[in-house]
Simulated assay, not measured.
Amino acid sequence: MTEHQKISAMSAGDEIASAYLVSLASLQQSRNGPYWRLELKDASGALEAKIWSPLSLSLPSLTAGQMVSVEGHVSLYREQLQLTVEALRVLSEEECAALPMEDYLVSSSRPAADMMADVERLCDVVLTHKPWKKFMRSVLSDKRIRPLLMKAPAAKSVHHAYMGGLLEHMLSVAELCMLMADHYPELDRQTLLAAALLHDIGKIDEMSGVLVTEYTDEGRLLGHIVQGIVMLEPYLRKSGLEPELVMHFKHLIASHHGEPEFGAAREPSTPEAFVLHYADNIDAKLAQCRGILPAPGEGEGMAWSPYQSLLGRSVCRPVRTPASSAETKASRQDKKESRQEERQCSLL
């Protein structure tokens, strides 16, 4: 197969011969006969494509989630780039398996294996109660759960909506919860960690597919909070955990959305439940901000996002306070010492 041509690098007049993911496929009718309207995607962007008659007649079935090899030319239509397809072939499973999926799917900036190692290191250090450690190990080593968790997005579109996003979000929320547990030692650190790491585990069944993420029937009918509690029930029964700890853990999962209007089965009713809810909320909100604002260093001055309906506002990237060279050096030293402490903890 030819070298991949990135969508973000295309311009009007380009000739294209490359593989792409079909994210939308719709057979429509024109005066000249049926035609396909497609959205093609890779990790760099999306592109509208049209397959006109008579070629469209030879392609009776195209669906979102297929990988296709495409030939065609790019033109400008209503000030937007559009690909006119001259040849298209759906790739086989073997051909898809040979593709570097990082070219086609947006993924976490951190390798999933590294994030999973951090999750397991946290569990080894924090979970000193043997039933908690047994429970977490049994879930994380499950042959069905582990590979799904390594790839799953945290959402279809709202936050961490990319491959590995769910694991990234769960780890981030757990680390935030541990920081708060350091500040508030009265919290049950172990129950909080277990719930923080698994609060969204039901999403591996709520949504399906890696190439194209859609809600499953079960996800639509039950939702990931109910699915997560049901999924974890067998592991909780075999863990040897005290019934009161199991009940508290389930409450943390059930209440992490905070309010019934936002999907919570119960409102938070313990200190740990408040901590998990707010940690989950702030991690999701900041992920949304990262997705819509230019990163620090990209351009100068204040920057505003377009209006965001989910946040109910536009978001501003303010001007940052300049850091002195001494602060920058101290920050690097702090990070170095933090990594050394993590390595030492992992050996305990």
Rank of each mutant, 00 (worst) to 15 (best):
L127I: 01
H199P: 03
E95Q: 12
I253S: 00
G164S: 04
G202P: 05
W52K: 11
L211F: 12
V212S: 05
R189K: 11
D188W: 00
D103L: 13
E120G: 07
R317K: 08
G297Y: 00
G13P: 05
L348W: 11
G209W: 03
G258P: 06
I229K: 01
I204T: 02
E186Q: 13
L83W: 07
Q190Y: 01
P318A: 12
S53L: 10
V126H: 01
W36I: 00
E95M: 04
R146T: 08
A326S: 14
A279T: 05
P153V: 03
A273C: 01
Q190H: 01
A264W: 02
Y20Q: 04
G301Y: 06
Q288P: 07
A287I: 06
K250E: 09
A154M: 04
S75W: 09
Y35T: 06
K250T: 06
Q333K: 11
C345I: 11
M178N: 04
A12L: 08
K203E: 05
T63H: 14
L140W: 01
A181S: 15
V125M: 08
G219H: 00
A46N: 11
R78K: 14
R189N: 04
S23R: 10
H248K: 12
Q340F: 11
L198V: 02
S208A: 12
G258Y: 03
E95K: 02
T328N: 12
E259Q: 15
E272R: 00
F274Q: 10
S208R: 14
P318K: 06
M170I: 06
A195R: 00
Q288S: 08
Y278Q: 13
T213C: 09
Q28L: 10
A46E: 15
S346M: 13
L140I: 06
G45A: 07
P185T: 07
L81T: 08
L241F: 00
I253T: 00
A326G: 08
P294K: 05
V70R: 00
T270S: 11
Y162D: 04
D283I: 11
V319N: 12
N32K: 13
E168L: 08
R146V: 05
K50G: 10
E206H: 04
